[in-house]
Design a protein around this nucleic acid. Structure first.
Lengths: 189, 189, 189, 189
DNA sequence: TATGAATGAGCCTTCATTCAT
DNA sequence: CATGAATGAAGGCTCATTCAT
């Protein structure tokens, strides 16, 4: 492989990263439905480049959030191991998830939206976040710290919804509400 | 005032009501972002008529939900009076609010969305629902049934968010999550 | 019905006709695939108006040619009646069809193209032109003036193809070739 | 000239041939308007390579068909020599031409289309096929087997048009219609 | 020479909004 | 007042073509 090819690939990778960064920024500013043109402009590239790297909006959205979703997923077993009780682990994991969501305006809504074209993201959630959360819930159930009937998917959706923030309902509010929701999940025994 | 004027006014009122009904139906079917033309068609009127009666979409949305929001508001003092405890009243009132939200596709999201053009709805919430909810919370606080720090606006936003339903997170899920949130709001004393 | 409505409808009809005329002209100049914008511009209307009147390109194409196709169809029985022999009637009818085709650049190609979105036109051909032509062919067969094996659809497609003209192959050439084809269809008995 | 230059040239030639083969295949599958990228992909080269070898689409199209067109051209004198009559030779030559056309999706249309960018192909037809066909026609005229007034160019265009096939008008139909056209060209003496 | 990433013009389509009747 | 035709901005997407490596 001649060096020039490597150079070009590196450049392409940088372009791709630039698009991802721009998309992330635009998503925060204007939501996940922002025009592709705006993302391209922010990234300083043509629309064609965006489409080349991410043929569908779903690909773009997924790529933007994949790293953090994966990180969040990987956190679950670690917390379970290190925490005093499974419920503590669940609470800590939830904190991390919320931190992730509230800094990504529109992601909560996106995670839940049944919009065609966001199946990727939904699948990602189902495949990684749901099992991670389920493992925590199972552990809680084993120690009877959890009200019965709480499922991972529903809980994640609820948290995702609670983290849809706005002008008068900010990150702190979302965190507070999630904390209350979790408190409500705790077994009253 | 000649009789014909009265007739004309009555007719105009009927037209307005027809648009409201049509809009309510369309909002349920296709969400609050449904094309104006669809609403006009459903109402059997021209788009111009819709615009005449409701210059902005916000006007229309607000008008559509005002009755139910007012009813919900009026429910609060009644429940407070009739219930065994303030917290029971809060739970019952919340039930009614959730029933309202989950049957109105997109309303929960609309209540929270900071979108320009929906300020009316937001204002309505601030002016009626928030005080109603606040009265219940105050009563709960007085009997020490409520965790401190829960404010009416934030709680309403949280409930609104939890009621954003979708294919895999339906009305029952939303109700369950709101119930858990409320449980979490209850004082642990 | 107030007069004003009639006026407006008349105006709308004029707009529609204007679009049809513009489309016909643009089709001649640039083929049936011409951009919708060009048609709108030529008609002096906005693109929305074109779409309102003809939601799909097929609708527009069909509308442009429908009158003449119908006229052509209606001609068949008349010619059959008035002509000395069925084959003469066929020849005269073919002349008319060719006159129609050669003045409509792109129609021949369109009639044959299997492009999705032009099914309308194809259906129109199947429903009207094919039976008309078949009636002439049947009459010719009855008098043994026709080589066996010539079907209406195939003949029409062939004629349509022969009428795809261009810079160096004009209307006269197309007519000559169709005449030769017809001569070849005549029974050699 | 160092050996490496020869190696490089041979490699370049192979690349060029690969593009031609790929283009031929893609043209058959998807027509002459197929995206350049598809051809490059099929050939396993970059689009730049396609453009380097064939700066315009016309160059590519012409190159793809040149061999077969030349073969067809070369066939004329041979057939004329071997056949019982000039008209028989014409018929056989036509068969070969039709065989060529019907297996090349879009070529018939391309031969006739006055599209800018396909002048090369048109020129090739004028320079080789037309003289070849003319020689046959001249021979037919000399033996009075041909209706007067049939010119080579027009006949070729007509045949090309008749070979524009589609879903309901296939190769067999095209062949039949060309046969009828030829029959019509035959002198009735 | 070969590559393929990047560009952006161009076309399609939808829908909010206006305004003459 | 009501109507709905007309408008055109806005956004999606494709692909021919260029050019740095």
């Amino acid at each position: 492989m001649p060096e020039s090819v490597g150079v070009r690939r590196a450049q392409a990778q940088r372009t791709r990263s630039g698009v991802l960064e721009a998309a992330a920024a635009v998503f925060v500013d204007r939501g996940i439905q922002a025009p592709v043109r705006d993302i391209a402009e922010r990234a300083g590239v043509g629309v064609g480049t965006v489409y080349r790297n991410f043929p569908t909006r779903a690909d773009l959205v997924t790529a933007v959030y994949r790293h953090q979703i994966d990180a969040c997923t990987a956190l679950a077993p670690r917390l379970l191991e290190e925490s005093a009780s499974p419920f503590t682990a669940l609470a800590l994991w939830t904190d991390a998830f919320v931190d992730f969501l509230v800094t990504k305006h529109g992601l909560g809504a996106a995670l839940g939206s049944g919009e065609p074209g966001l199946e990727n993201l939904h699948t990602l959630m189902l495949d990684t976040l749901v099992p991670a959360c389920a493992s925590l819930l199972d552990a809680c159930a084993a120690t009877e710290e959890l009200r019965p009937g709480v499922t991972a998917y529903t809980l994640l959706r609820a948290i995702g919804n609670l983290c849809i923030t706005g002008p008068d309902y900010g990150q702190a509010d979302a965190k507070g509400m999630v904390a209350l929701l979790l408190a409500g999940c705790r077994s009253t025994v």
